[in-house]
Design a binder for these strands. Sequence first.
DNA 1: ATTACTGCAAAGGATTTGCATGTGA
DNA 2: TCACATGCAAATCCTTTGCAGTAAT
Lengths: 141, 141
Amino acid sequence: MTHEGLDLAQRLHQAGLRMTPQRQIVLDSLCAAGPHATAEEIFQRVREAAPSVDRATVYRTLSTLEEIAIVDVTRVHGKLVYEISGERPHHHLVCRRCGKMIELTHEPFSHLYHSLQEMTGFQILDRHLSLTGLCPACQGA
Amino acid sequence: MTHEGLDLAQRLHQAGLRMTPQRQIVLDSLCAAGPHATAEEIFQRVREAAPSVDRATVYRTLSTLEEIAIVDVTRVHGKLVYEISGERPHHHLVCRRCGKMIELTHEPFSHLYHSLQEMTGFQILDRHLSLTGLCPACQGA
DNA sequence: ATTACTGCAAAGGATTTGCATGTGA
DNA sequence: TCACATGCAAATCCTTTGCAGTAAT
């Protein structure tokens, strides 16, 4: 499960931080939860594994992990969702009506990123965008 | 100021809603506030015009206007910002470090929207996206 | 020993809701 | 008239913070 355990522990260490049991559990829960878990969902998983871990610890850990770029944060439906940032960037389409969500590779976005970079000089860093609209089934309604 | 007044009143009416003085004031404040006003900023403007209007009314009005597509909501810096949705779509680039924000036309996005529509069948409705990255000045740092 | 990390409890900000009253069509 | 809107106050949701105790290096 935590084949990246050592790796992540090292990255924490490089940042002057410590690998604690709580952080390990949060990381495990983050992996187990998949790519769009809210803080609350992660907290529930953490609680299953270790009921004594406090919600505040989960929030603090997520925030810490974000700062050192181990996790990505995005907003979907107005809520913050977290995921391990290791893999290649990907994005989502969410249906405004039924909530259906589909995953997208980065490919269709890379052209946009490049043109924006050329046009503006900005280096675009978003690795996990969430666009909204109507899914095919909901376009009739 | 409210050259669109009648128009908007009609759209409210078509949705079975009423044009009230409060809603008119919120709409005026929305216009006056420009394209990236938070609910709180709008409330402050409303309060200047009519101190008796409650914060809850502003929130309810913004939500109502969003539902009937008179206003657009977006998240910038984690905060919800509102704007009249009348004009053509536009987007923003925000610097993660210094907060600098530049405006973008929809053009570079339309290609992406089209490919996504072809690939997925989703009709993408976002008229006001906010991408983040590093502005030229902050890329060195 | 030092410094970071944790749990607990409490605070905080933003947004929503219940309810009685007011008001536009 | 009468369903919709409003003001007020309280509630709720999500997240952060202060502090004293605990643990890692």
